[in-house]
Amino acid sequence: MASSNDLVEQWFAQTLESFPDLSARFLAEEKDRFRNPVGHALHTSMAALLQEVLGNMDAGKIAPALDAIVRIRVVQDFTPGEAVGFVFLLRSIVRGSNPPRPAMIEARIDQLALMAFDQYMRCREQIAEIRANEIRRQTRARPALQRK
């Protein structure tokens, strides 16, 4: 089977296709994690996720990696389906590499997708929450506001 590095690159490249062409190239090629935080976060987190899918499926490692990716895609111009759809891209990539125990891997990918949906919803809820918190902070009830 192909090395997991190759699989990550394929997965990353296919995910970037959801961005405009020229931005995809920037996201893929700029290696400085501060100049290109989105590309960096996607790449490192995808590598971590793949390792878990092919390895131990450690929830403690999956959660932060999945969070890093979904959190970004939630606020970008994607529909919910597009935002978490990157997980499904992994199916054909892994299948093409003839892994041992393919059924188990596919089941794990499905599980990952569900976790991504959950995460997407959590981020959405969080956005609503931080919006409310911000309004509260900006009008912290100083006497000024009580006496109009």
Binding site: E17, S18, L22, G81, F88, R91, S92
Partner: peptide, 16 residues
């Protein structure tokens, strides 16, 4: 295949 469809939908051309 569904995943291929998904990819096509998500594809955003840079446009002009």
């Amino acid at each position: 295949m569904p995943q291929e469809l998904l990819r096509i939908e998500a594809k955003k051309p840079g446009g002009n």
